[in-house]
Design a binder for these strands. Structure first.
Ligand SMILES: [Mn+2]
Ligand SMILES: [Mn+2]
Ligand SMILES: [Zn+2]
Ligand SMILES: [Zn+2]
Lengths: 134, 134
DNA sequence: CCCGCAGTCGACAACAGTTCTCACATGCTC
DNA sequence: GAGCATGTGAGAACTGTTGTCGACTGCGGG
């Protein structure tokens, strides 16, 4: 039986206030800084539970760190700025169909996929362009 | 100046004989078992160098482990069996165009993407189906 | 050839992220 | 409220990976 605890509620609340992706460690530090008493293990358990419930979406950084974000329920993917971390949710029914089709053609069943797009957002590109100019 | 060493040659050779994705640790263990003397750090450095040279492709497992595979040079994606790890390389020009276009529409430049498809391959599905039947 | 040395090796320590342990605390049901 | 399954958290343990540093070696120049 799943129980309502102060800690779980608080972790949930953090992701309500926060935009974009955040790691468990960051959430933990943030809560501690705000005066919330909570253990790191508990944060890990809480985000895992939220992922299992489909309330958080998780991706892995190149460095191997898991980061989490409250997501809309529709299936979508992420467009992530390499420089500032800003993320946009994008959808592409054509991609979904393509993935399912190509997997089916190879005899695969029970198909899922992961798709992330990375780039430099307009703002960061502008900033980079001005600082890079000699 | 990059030097030719017995160890780098050996790691390269392992990926020549091996199909599919393999972790640095697995490669290290495999070499040790075969009587090859090599340090784990060296394996990590070697695979990293091969990735930098574009000779190996690397993806990250859900568990956060980096796995490597000798890849064809064309841009492609992977269809991976959850059960046995068998992988197929797949291509989809439409997906490439879609990713670039949607990123461009959001003002992103210097765009890359990652796309992996997961499923159960036909063989594993058959095996699973028979064992699951009561 | 062999010298010299930058590049490389590898045992080991250090790190980072995550999970486990277990004594203790606390929601929930009755 | 009492009982108890469930959750908590400090710390240890674990995992994959990278850093350290003295020893070693490929290789271009002498
Ligand atoms: Mn999709
Ligand atoms: Mn692609
Ligand atoms: Zn940006
Ligand atoms: Zn399979």
């Amino acid at each position: 039986m799943i129980r309502n605890t102060r800690q779980r509620t608080a972790v949930n609340a953090v992701f309500e206030e926060l935009e974009g992706f955040h790691s468990a460690q960051e959430v933990h530090a943030r809560m501690r800084a705000a005066g919330d008493s909570i253990g790191l293990s508990t944060v890990y358990r809480a985000v895992q539970a939220l992922v299992d419930d489909g309330e958080l979406d998780s991706i892995r950084t190149d460095a191997g760190e898991a980061i989490y974000r409250r997501c809309s329920t529709r299936h979508h993917h992420h467009l992530v700025c390499r420089a500032c971390g800003r993320t946009e949710e994008v959808e592409g029914p054509a991609v979904e169909r393509w993935a399912d089709r190509v997997a089916g053609e190879h005899g695969f069943v029970d198909v899922t996929h992961t798709l992330e797009i990375f780039g430099t957002c307009a703002a960061c590109h502008r900033a980079g362009a001005t600082t890079e100019t000699p």
